[in-house]
Design a protein around this nucleic acid. Sequence first.
DNA 1: GTATTATGAATGAACG
DNA 2: CGTTCATTCATAATAC
Lengths: 181, 181
Amino acid sequence: MEEALSGFCIKGSVRGNGNNGSTGTGTKCERWNPTTEQVKVLTDLFRSGLRTPSTDQIQKISTQLSFYGKIESKNVFYWFQNHKARERQKRRKVSIDENDLISRDNNKITSSKEYFEVKEYQLERVIETLQLFPLNSFDETDQQEKFIFHASECREISTFPYRISAPEMDHPPLDLRLSFL
Amino acid sequence: MEEALSGFCIKGSVRGNGNNGSTGTGTKCERWNPTTEQVKVLTDLFRSGLRTPSTDQIQKISTQLSFYGKIESKNVFYWFQNHKARERQKRRKVSIDENDLISRDNNKITSSKEYFEVKEYQLERVIETLQLFPLNSFDETDQQEKFIFHASECREISTFPYRISAPEMDHPPLDLRLSFL
DNA sequence: GTATTATGAATGAACG
DNA sequence: CGTTCATTCATAATAC
C-alpha cells in the first residue's frame, strides 16, 4: 500500500473561545487496514455471537489474525466495539423508521430495509466451530437489548453523580496553588 | 493567534448554552468538547499528581476553565475519571501483541514492527507546587507535551483502552479452527 | 480530482 | 473503579 503522505490529522476544534494551539505536526498516523481474511474471521466470530471479547480472547484472535497480516490487539478490540455499536445504531435507526408501521400485535419487524444484516439471527450459544474460547465467551446476552432509551437524546444530568464529599485524600497535599484553589 | 485553520469540524458545536435550536426533535445536547487549553490545563493537573479532585477542586477548576470555553463541573469530574482509568489500562497492557509473534526463540524483537508499546511517560512526579497555568515555570522540562497531547493531531497512541493483565502463558495451542472459513 | 461512504480510532458519558 | 455505550473525528476506500 502506498503511502499518501498527507495524513495529518487536523482536529479543527472551532470554538468560540478556541484557539487551536499549534497543530502543525504532520504526524503520520497510519491506521490498521485489515485484510480480507482478517475481516472474514472477525465477522464470523461476530456472527457466531462474540460481541465483547475478553482480553484473553482478543489476544488469541489477534495472534491468529497476525498470520494474515499486521494486526494488534487493539485493532481487534476496536473492531468489535465498532461493529457492535454500528449494528445497534443501524438497528435503532431502522426501528425508529419503521416505528409507525409496527403494530403491537406483531412483534416481527422484519420489514426493515436493512434487515439483512440487522437481523443477524439470534445466534445460539452453540458454536462448535469456534472452540477457541471455552470460557464464557458469549455471555454478553446481547439479546437482552438493554432498553436504554435515554430519551434518544442524552440525559441532562443536573447533578452529576460524583459526591466526593468523603475525605478521600488519595492525593498528596497538593499545593495546587492555582490562584483559585 | 491565527484562526482555526480548518473549516471542518462541521459538528456545529454551539457552545452557547446548549441551545442548539435544531428544528424538529433536535433536543440533542452535545457533549462537552474541551478546548486545547482546557485539555492542557487538565493534563497538567493530572501530571502534577491530581487524580481524584475533590468537589471543591472540581468546582474551582471548572470555574477557571470556563474562561476557555463552556464547561461544567461534571466534565472535569469525568475527565479525571476517564484519564485515570485509561492511563491505567494502557499501562497494564503493553506489548502482548508481540508476545505471540516473537515465539520463544529467545529472539526479542524490539523494533521490527509498529507494535510499539506504551509511551512510557512515567512522570507522575507529584509536584506539590503546581501552577495551573504554566506560564513558564513548570517544573518538568523533559516530557513536555510530546505525545500526551493527543488532542490536536494524530495521536499515535499505541496502547488501547482495555486492560490486559493476564500473565498469559506463552501461546497455547489456540484452537481457532474456523473450519467454516 | 472531488464527493461520499465505510470504518478505524478516540473519548465523553455513564453503568454495575 | 473498571468496563461498556454512544457519538464523534479522521481517513482509507470507493463512487462519481
